[in-house]
Nucleic acid binder design. Structure first.
Length: 403
RNA sequence: GGCAGGUUGCCCGAGUGGCCAAAGGGAGCUGACUGUAAAUCAGCCGCGCAAGCUACGGGAGUUCGAAUCUCUCACCUGCCA
């Protein structure tokens, strides 16, 4: 479906029946042979199509850090994901609404996503980022805070109270508020407000949290419908529900069934994902979700994770890792990730990765990158990010072509 | 020429009798980073596997014990001639 068609179709979604509310914005184009879940497709948005599987670059504060939008386009990024919490604090959703929405504001003409602020419930709250997708731990507690950090978010059944990390001011997010902000930001694909737990939480906390997220999902759908009708002149924004449930099969399957019936346009899979169980957890969820809806894996993109995710039916995913890691001097190559700051690259005139077609590899050596990082030159972040983003985009392109 | 101050590990710099192989930075080395409180964070950082050795400008002393006190030499920095 082309963009104008989809906008025209928007009116069709204003019917009152929840089940008919969602868009028909996704079409499957191929399946991974001998595999029930893996597939390719096209996800249509008012700002263009996304060929899936696709890596969605993260630009939290309406910028992929250190890189121009033009460079992102050039390296093949299909869409960008920003963050409602961060843009709410700065510069404020009213401003972005006024100037014509996120894409226009940041000069990105392609598709855009916004995350709901749900991630910040965890990252500013319990704050143990380490248990997101990495090593599990046997310690279980419901109120652990990373050492040396002050808790900035408190959850209750109605919503979350945040203390701004910028100036300490208090803010309140509810499912409705998140929807309102995301409608003002105007991204093509927005996410339901959810609570992100960690692997540290107890089973009983996971259960009550999941129920909270389910009720929030219902409220998000209702508020999204209301706002969509009010703002019927705008391009339709697709709403994705977020499946939580941590490492528990019954909770994951139940969440997928529950949200699968709520009339979302697509789904995000989020929360505590033990790296070793990533494929299994994604499979549980995708076996339950409606097949004709896009599935986004939130916050995952290490190369090995990408293969597993796509095999198990993921269509899109986003991740800060390629850009964050790049800014810290870690670069992807065919032989794995390495730190260019290591002294052994001081005189290495080879490009970062053999067989990479990115701007950085075409023009610069490891030795030069090593120097730029050592000298703390800003361009180091730019060149390294361009490479890592291209590396992941190309990897996913290659996977898509092979399906 | 006189008076005063100074010389500490790769660099800057704290330390003025034992708790000093010597604070803290920086540099160097390594690691981490998965819906971004991140151009961030963490560890190592005289030699030796160790017992131990060598170290606070050089040398000589005082003391059970000196980076710390005394003498002397060298160099540096102020101010006065």
């Amino acid at each position: 479906m082309s963009a104008p068609e989809l906008i025209a179709d928007g009116s069709a979604f204003h019917s009152s029946a929840v089940d008919n509310f969602a868009t028909d914005n996704f079409s499957l184009t191929a399946r991974l042979p001998g595999n029930e879940l893996g597939r390719t497709g096209v996800l249509s948005t008012p700002h263009g199509d996304i060929r899936t599987p696709a890596f969605i670059a993260v630009g939290t504060k309406a910028t992929v850090k250190a890189v121009l939008p033009e460079s992102m386009l050039e390296l093949g990024a299909q869409a960008v994901l920003a963050n409602a919490y961060h843009l709410y604090l700065q510069p404020g959703p009213e401003l972005i609404d006024e100037v014509g929405g996120l894409g226009k504001f940041m000069n990105w003409s392609g598709p855009t996503f916004t995350d709901s602020g749900g991630f910040q419930v965890m990252s500013l709250g319990a704050g143990f980022k380490k248990v997101l997708a990495m090593n599990a731990t046997t310690v279980q507690a419901d109120d652990v805070i990373a050492e040396g950090k002050t808790r900035l978010a408190h959850v209750d059944d109605d919503g979350v109270t945040f203390k701004s990390h910028l100036d300490g001011s208090r803010h309140r997010f509810t499912p409705e508020v998140s929807m309102q902000i995301q409608h003002q930001l105007g991204a093509d694909i927005i996410f339901a407000f959810d609570e992100l737990t960690t692997l540290m939480n107890t089973r009983s906390y996971q259960e009550s949290s999941l129920e909270r997220t389910r009720l929030w999902a219902l409220r998000c759908v209702a508020e999204h419908r209301r706002l969509t009708e009010i703002r019927a002149d705008r391009p339709y924004q697709a709403l994705f529900g977020v499946i939580q449930g941590a490492q528990y099969e019954d909770l994951r399957r139940k969440a997928a069934q529950d949200l699968g019936r709520m009339g979302f346009d697509g789904f995000g899979i989020g929360g505590a994902l033990e790296k070793e169980n990533l494929g299994t957890i994604v499979r549980w969820v995708n076996e339950e979700l409606p097949e004709n809806k896009p599935r986004h894996l939130l916050g995952i993109s290490e190369p090995d994770d990408i293969f597993i995710a796509v095999q198990n039916g993921i269509d899109t995913f986003d991740c800060v890792s390629p850009s964050r890691v790049a800014r810290n001097g870690a670069l992807y190559s065919l032989d794995g990730r390495f730190n260019v700051t290591n002294s052994r690259y001081r005189r290495d005139l080879a490009p970062i990765s053999d067989d990479c077609d990115c701007y950085t590899c075409a023009n610069y050596s490891r030795a030069y990158l090593n120097h730029l990082f050592k000298a703390k030159e800003m361009i180091s972040c730019t060149l390294a990010t361009i490479h890592n983003e291209r590396f992941i985009v190309k990897l996913v392109d290659d996977i898509r072509r092979s399906i």
